[in-house]
Design a protein around this nucleic acid. Structure first.
Lengths: 186, 186
DNA sequence: ACCTGAACACCGTTCAAGT
DNA sequence: ACCTGAACACCGTTCAAGT
């Protein structure tokens, strides 16, 4: 009657992260996850309610990792340098882990969206930086503007939507400079 | 031996548009499409190679429609007013047809991405407007910057990613003004 | 308390047979 | 020349039965 657990939630989420990384969310089948952790499909349902919840947990985990990298990217000395640094970390993350990146911003049923706390932690560094540039009252709107631009750029880059030619590295740096200037307190 | 066609490609794409509009891409099953046009599932394969191709055709059609609305939004007299107008048309489209909007920017296998011509037509109005504001040489990069921002904002809005409060209409208008100023020739 | 095989509903796609 | 039913592989999920 006891019954040894042959896997764990952490183990399952970790396997899920790897599968999403290499195959994308569409490649995340319960069968693949089960195989990766060494059980059969149905056993996963002892640990997660369904595939959607597993996707949610993977998204949370990956969002936290991005947040940590963003935190590590700023030193608070020179806000404009910090802004450039944040943008480049963001872009590097999207290149190294395009499928994780897509997952973070993928539309999800409300109940499975990243918890408010997770989002707040991930946005912390950007908010600190934009407050330094735009001032306290405009900090939040400035953060949204920069984040929206960076996210839009990266999504379009990943989707291959920039087809008229020109150098994308230059276009990205152009955007950072324009936005940095745009939000800086006049 | 003749054999009356009971449906057509145009009919199928139109049905697909409606289904995507109301159920999203995940709701676009071959069975639903077939039912909507009055045939059985397998018959669809006489008109499209597979589900992916159908999604591609729907995305093209919807992208063209957005492009037409953007074209109609500018008059070329006041570029800053045109920029505001373009941004608001973009946002309105995303609110009226969130699932179409998602489809337009959804990552797709290269072979199924919107044709270059389709993209060019859809970007025309923005490019004209940013060239008027930023000058000829910077027009393309300015267009990318504005489009990236608008797209990022709308994706995040649709995904419910703006959880720290504040008025989203104001945040959108704040962004337009900041970006307009940022790309305007100094 | 967790794992398993069997089973079900659903979906994309193929194919031989109809008209 | 296009449509159909039957069939197959694949997938998420449930459940009764094992240990």
């Amino acid at each position: 009657m006891p019954a040894p657990a042959r896997t764990s939630l952490a183990h399952i989420v970790e396997a899920g992260r790897l599968i999403v990384h290499s195959q994308g969310v569409e490649g995340l089948t319960m069968g693949e996850v089960a195989k990766a952790v060494g059980v059969r499909g149905p056993s996963l349902y002892k640990h997660v309610a369904n595939r959607g919840e597993l996707i949610h947990l993977i998204a949370e985990s990956v969002t936290l990792e991005l947040g940590e990298r963003l935190d590590a990217a700023i030193d608070g000395e020179d806000p404009l340098a910090d802004l450039r640094s944040l943008a480049h970390v963001f872009r590097k993350f999207s290149h190294e882990h395009p499928e994780w990146y897509r997952l973070i911003f993928a539309p999800m049923p409300t109940e499975w969206q990243p918890a408010g706390e997770t989002l707040a932690r991930a946005s912390r560094a950007m908010l600190i930086t934009t407050e330094a540039l735009a001032g306290r009252e405009e900090g939040l709107e400035a953060a949204r503007t920069v984040t929206a631009w960076a996210h839009g750029f990266l999504t379009m880059e990943l989707a291959g939507a920039f087809r008229l030619d020109g150098d994308l590295d230059d276009a990205f740096d152009y955007g950072i400079e324009r936005l940095g200037a745009a939000i800086t307190r006049r």
